[in-house]
Structures are given as structure tokens and as C-alpha cells.
């Protein structure tokens, strides 16, 4: 036994340097980026870049806008994704396979192509508007694009798989007999869903939603194109600060705040998760 343990430790010893290198390699750039925000042009420590942020809080307002859009997009995703996953759970295995394939296909199509495809579908001259006008439901085209609605639709399309797949997997794992047991004890369908099914899918729902939210924060292409540039997101701002006028220190300060906000949200999620799990 001791020999086995020793051997294991020995084996681990072989990979330790690799792990250290990997950790360093992955995290050094991040640390460097973080440090940059406290680095003054003359050299040495400074908080001027942060002070600048709070003096002219427009970047913070863009950040707030990003958070708001991300929250709404996440909620939209949940509102679409949960019923979708639930519906898929009830399908025959064959139909489930097809449904999963449909959900995954967007993964294989370039985000740019997908985004432009929405223009074809939802534009003023797009298929949906032509159909609406042809059926006489509206006489003027409906503005689906170049506003927050467009951004929502685009984001939902891109991010839905990230929510639906883990949720669907979690739902598949739920034993039908639990619902049957609840029914046999006299619970009506509503109660069965609220007290048994929903709580059991809650961890997957929460982690899926968190993932979607964090991905939303970094969205770049979709808001730029489907939002008609009128929905400022933090990633577009960072692109400007890094690539147009290299103010890496300023970009670092903005990213650091974004990172802190994200970590706070993650911590809140963990705390909530632990409380629910206890």
C-alpha cells in the first residue's frame, strides 16, 4: 500500500514541472495584463488609470450596459432553453438525436456567417418581414435588427447550445420514477414540476446560465453587427483601447474591473449553490 502511494507520488512528481509550466504559461499573460493597469508611463506603481475610469465614467457605463444586456440575454436564453430541453427530454431517442443535432449545428457554422444569416432572415427585406407584410399582419417592416432585440436574437442563437446541452443532459439523468412517485403520492403535475423536476435541474440550469452570462460579457461580433453598432459592449471598447489607440493600461483597468465583477458573480453563484446543496 505504502509502496503504491509512494509510486503514485513519484509518478505525480514527473508531471509536476509540466503542471507548473502550464499554470505559469496560462496565467502569466493574465497577471501581466493585471499588472499593466497599475503601471505608470514613467515606471512604477500608480492608480491613475483607475482614477481616470472613475473621473470619466463612460467606460463604466459601457460596462454596466454590457452587464445589463448580458443579464437580459441570459434570461431570454433560459426562457427559450429550458422549455426546449424539457421538450427534448420527452422525445423518442431518435427524435432526441435529431433535436440535439439541430441544437449543435450552429456550433459548426462560423459566427460571422450566422450573424449575417440573421440579416437575411430578419432584415427589412428579409424573409420574416416579407411574410409578415404578405400575410397583412403589418404594413411597414418590423425592426428586428440594429437594436437590442437584434442583439438578443443573435446572442440567443449563438449561446443556446451552451445552455440547452448541459440542461438536457441533466434532465435525461432524472429518473422518471421520481415523478411517478410524486404522482402516486397525490401531487398534481404543477407540484411535481415545481417541487421535484425543477429543483433537480437547478444546478445544471444555474451553471449553464452562468456560462451563458459570462460568454455574453465577451460578445463582440453579434452586438457590433446585429446591434447596428448602437449597443455598446465592453469587448468593442477593449478592441478600441487595444487595437486602435494602444492604451493597454486603460484596457487593463477596464478588464480588471470586468474580471472582478465576473468573479463576484461567480462567487455569489457558488455561495448560493452551496446553500442550496446543504
Amino acid at each position: 500500500m505504502a509502496a503504491i502511494l509512494a509510486e503514485r507520488r513519484h509518478g505525480f512528481g514527473f508531471v509536476t514541472p509540466l503542471l507548473v509550466v502550464m499554470l505559469a504559461a496560462f496565467n502569466l499573460p493574465i497577471l501581466y495584463m493585471l499588472a499593466l493597469g497599475f503601471w505608470s508611463k514613467q515606471g512604477g506603481f500608480t492608480t491613475e488609470h483607475y482614477a481616470a475610469l472613475f473621473d470619466a465614467p463612460i467606460y463604466l457605463r459601457v460596462l454596466a450596459n454590457t452587464l445589463r444586456i448580458s443579464v437580459v440575454a441570459t434570461l431570454v436564453n433560459v426562457a427559450i432553453g429550458y422549455p426546449l430541453a424539457y421538450w427534448m427530454r420527452g422525445l423518442s431517442p431518435r427524435a432526441q438525436f435529431i433535436a440535439v443535432a439541430c441544437v449543435i449545428t450552429p456550433f459548426w457554422i462560423s459566427i460571422l456567417v450566422r450573424t449575417y444569416a440573421w440579416i437575411v432572415v430578419l432584415g427589412n427585406n428579409g424573409m420574416v418581414n416579407r411574410l409578415l407584410q404578405w400575410t397583412g399582419l403589418t404594413d411597414a417592416p418590423v425592426s428586428f435588427l440594429y437594436n437590442e432585440l437584434g442583439v438578443m436574437i443573435g446572442m440567443a442563437n449563438v449561446l443556446l447550445p451552451f445552455l440547452v446541452l448541459p440542461l438536457f443532459a441533466a434532465m435525461l439523468r432524472i429518473d422518471d420514477r421520481l415523478m411517478q412517485a410524486a404522482a402516486s403520492m397525490g401531487a398534481p403535475p404543477r407540484t411535481i414540476f415545481l417541487k421535484v423536476f425543477l429543483p433537480l435541474t437547478m444546478p445544471a440550469l444555474a451553471s449553464g446560465a452562468l456560462l451563458v452570462f459570462i460568454l455574453c460579457l465577451g460578445f463582440y461580433v453579434t452586438p457590433a453587427i446585429l446591434g447596428g453598432g448602437k449597443v455598446p459592449m465592453i469587448s468593442n471598447l477593449l478592441d478600441f483601447l487595444i487595437n486602435q489607440i494602444p492604451r493597454w493600461e486603460q484596457a487593463s483597468a477596464v478588464s480588471t474591473i470586468l474580471l472582478v465583477v465576473t468573479l463576484l458573480i461567480f462567487a455569489a453563484y457558488r455561495a448560493l449553490d452551496r446553500k442550496v446543496g446543504a
Partner: peptide, 20 residues
């Protein structure tokens, strides 16, 4: 008729306890 209308106590072979 549905299970709710039968007032039957049932113990499943696999227990079917609510894990949460």
C-alpha cells in the same frame, strides 16, 4: 384515471427517493 385520484401508497423497487 390519474394517480392523484387513487390515494395509493407506493414503494418503488428502486426507492425513488427525492435526492434533493
Amino acid at each position: 384515471s390519474s394517480p392523484q385520484q387513487r390515494n395509493v401508497g407506493l414503494v418503488f423497487q428502486s426507492y425513488a427517493l427525492f435526492p434533493h
